[in-house]
């Protein structure tokens, strides 16, 4: 019996011959660990960059977004559960797109960037890595949308070939992570710091779930940690929860909860705090933290006003706004 130990994520699955890891898509065949969904995405769409959500990275640009089956988390409220909680052989729709094909498809769709998203691209690591190298050679950018549950060594290597990330920080509480996602908190915090150290553009998302992670004191601690470890200019997105998958017993997040969380994070010193999944909210837009000038007005995923200077500054007070602006 030729067992292998996967060293990609903190689970460190011991996988018997013929078996798969917890993520379902890394399989042991003949004592070799293989990435079974390499070149086999099950979702391919063109999305606006704001949907990732990334608000300070090439705003308004279309991004070619892909995912394969599998995930190394098991979030009870996963909105992509049909994809994430399946193995490669359980998915009906599989495209054939090796890294060369993928870059060509993205270019054909008029996209200058590729997002590895929907499920968690940690589990299709090699596909991301190889595609990202080719994307760079073609003058394109790579965006990594993840829960951040990955070991430091593979992450540092990946950071050399990706350009931006939105990473979920689901709660500032290890108990929440264990009960609701099956993962733990510390590796996610380590991943966030690694992204910052490696110079990858970083935005953070926290999905607020009523009664589970909406405690204001926890939100305050989280915001203070982000400010001290990642920087006060790190965009933080609070996202509204909707009943989903195995968490249909809870109501959607009230608007007041999102408003209070946003205020708490701004009081803790974060300069760019957004509200997501509520269209038309002022928290969708970007304001100058110095003089309050409306810099970017968003309505849903669409930009209706763009007032930044060409070098990414406030047009009235010249305050630089951190980001990667076109």
């Amino acid at each position: 019996m030729r067992e292998v130990v996967c060293e990609l994520c903190p689970r460190k699955c011991v996988i018997p011959e013929g078996g798969a890891g917890d993520c379902r898509v890394r399989v042991n065949i003949g004592g070799k660990l293989l990435a079974s969904t390499y070149g086999r995405p099950s979702a391919m769409h063109v999305d606006p960059m704001e949907k990732k959500p990334l608000y300070h990275f090439h705003p308004g640009s279309p991004v070619f977004s892909i995912a394969t089956a599998g995930c190394n988390l098991h979030c009870l409220n996963c909105q992509n559960w049909q994809l994430s909680q399946s193995g490669g052989e359980e998915i009906e729709k599989i495209f054939n797109a090796d890294p060369v094909d993928l870059v060509a498809l993205a270019r054909d769709q008029g996209c200058e960037s590729i997002a590895y998203t929907y499920s968690d691209p940690v589990v299709f690591y090699e596909y991301v890595y190889d595609s990202s190298i080719l994307a760079h050679e073609a003058g394109m950018q790579n965006v990594f949308i993840t829960a951040g549950y990955i070991n430091t060594e593979p992450l540092r290597r990946l950071c050399k070939v990706i350009d931006a990330t939105n990473t979920d920080l689901k709660a500032f509480d290890d108990g929440f992570y264990r009960k609701t996602t099956g993962a733990t908190l510390q590796p996610v915090l380590d991943a966030l710091v690694t992204f910052r150290e490696e110079g990858v553009w970083l935005e953070v998302t926290n999905l607020l779930i009523p009664t589970l992670n909406d405690d204001l004191s926890m939100i305050r601690r989280m915001a203070k940690w982000i400010r001290s470890e990642l920087g006060e200019g790190t965009p933080l997105h609070f996202s509204r929860f909707h009943p989903m998958y195995r968490m249909r017993n809870l109501p959607p997040t009230p608007g007041e909860t999102l408003d209070r969380a946003r205020q708490e994070a701004m009081d803790a010193g974060l300069k760019y705090v957004y509200i997501g999944n509520i269209s038309g909210h002022m928290g969708n837009s970007t304001y100058c933290p110095v003089d309050g000038t409306l810099l970017i007005k968003r309505e849903g995923f669409l930009i209706s006003e763009y007032n930044l200077t060409s070098d990414g500054r406030c047009p009235t007070c010249n305050e630089p706004v951190p980001g990667v602006w076109q």
Binding site: E3, V5, C6, E7, G31, G39, R40, N96, Y127
Partner: peptide, 18 residues
């Protein structure tokens, strides 16, 4: 036939147990 030709990529981070 083309599918059979698309072999799975070996993972970058693993080791034999033991």
């Amino acid at each position: 036939a083309r599918e059979k030709k698309m072999a799975m990529r070996e993972a970058d981070y693993y080791r034999p147990r033991g």
